[in-house]
Design a protein around this nucleic acid. Structure first.
Lengths: 211, 211
DNA sequence: CGGTCTCTTGATTGTTGTCAAAGGCGGTGG
DNA sequence: CCACCGCCTTTGACAACAATCAAGAGACCG
């Protein structure tokens, strides 16, 4: 069971046994929070099943979508490692299964293990890469560029997600998204089928808006 | 010499010797770039002396300040580890001394070394923490809140930095900063001495603007 | 056939950047 | 010592961008 988790696949039987003694598995229902912005972490969470949305909240109550997590991933291990409060909230978009590890004991017994340490390194590195991308798109792109980027990179999601959901992913008001899409349509940069799935995209022109 | 760098302090004589064969030291003058956004990395850079400013550039040419780096730190090791292009530019604010390590060889010979791996982990973790803070302030705070935060956390810099420099650090137009400071003064939240250093700050009120 | 949700469209507002002009301040050189 | 120059700051007017508010149209579901 634990052995099937990539982070731990290289551990010895004795280590797996030891690890199993400091962790529990827990189910979360769709709509439940794994943690809230500002909370102090106690467990190192590993997402085994389900989808989780990570987002921040502004003072005025607006959500800022950061990214979704899919199995199998450590969730916000930064806060454990740095002993800080969660900088964002984690909401289960589907029923989810979480492995919760007592972090203090994990740090003491496993973090210096080279295999574990390297896996943590990989995980943190990919998070930092994601943060960089979020930061780039949110700070350097205008709304139309953000939409262009989303279309180029996620065209298959049109017709699957509602516009209101896409708007939340690209952190725009639904009205703004609607206007930008109308504008792209009018300029012939994009065409839709009857079911709102995409029929044609002028990829290069759209890329030109953000690259 | 290499031994005095915290990342490598625990290495054996043989390892230090081996490391010394894959790295060179290089001086950079104030105003020179260590790397530019979009470049492909070849070296793992370690800042030994000097101060370096990391910033992004928007499509319209505006700079977005991310943070400054002080010795001794790895610089943008993420790009080496992830084999991606630099997501930001690095400008030397003073004359600087950089240790440049051939990353491919470093990865092969040293990255699996537990001590090195753990040091990388710590470094990446602190970067991720910084990114999170940048992301929070830039995405969730309004201009006045950003200025309030800066005043509370860096009051000693008033009178040292010019307003135009502070404006660049908090990513605001100098005019906007000037107006916000005038507003705070008018509301009695802050008072200055003749030399522009701070005489009084209503810390709690200012905190209330961003916490 | 309500009723609810989504999408669209127009009008308006809030926030911040940009442009322009004027004043201050310090340094330099005659 | 003073005139001048350049940079910084301040202030006002304005523009750009996107959120919000409001209203109506359309789609889907019970």
């Amino acid at each position: 069971m634990l052995r099937s988790i990539p982070f731990f696949s290289k551990l010895s039987d004795a280590e797996i046994e030891s690890l199993s003694r400091i962790c529990v598995e827990k189910s979360y229902k769709k709509g439940e929070f794994l943690f809230l912005e500002g909370e102090e972490p106690k467990w190192l969470n590993i997402l085994l099943k389900g989808t989780i949305k990570i987002y921040k909240t502004t003072r005025s109550g607006k959500e800022i979508f950061l990214h979704t997590m899919r199995p199998i991933s450590m969730v916000a291990e930064l806060v454990n490692f740095e002993h800080i409060a969660y900088p964002a909230s984690a909401l289960c978009l589907t029923n989810s299964q979480i492995l919760k590890i007592d972090y203090d004991k994990f740090e003491r017994d496993f973090l210096l293990n080279p295999k574990i340490c390297f896996e943590m390194l990989k995980s943190l590195s990919s998070k930092l890469k994601i943060m960089n991308e979020v930061l780039s798109t949110e700070l350097t792109l205008k709304s139309d560029a953000k939409v262009a980027k989303f279309i180029v990179e996620n065209s298959e999601l049109f017709g699957v997600l509602k516009q209101i959901q896409i708007a939340s992913v690209v952190n725009l008001a639904p009205e703004t998204l609607s206007r930008i899409i109308a504008d792209f349509k009018q300029k012939g940069l994009i065409e839709f089928n009857d079911d709102f799935s995409i029929k044609f995209v002028a990829i290069e022109e759209l890329k030109g808006l953000y690259e």
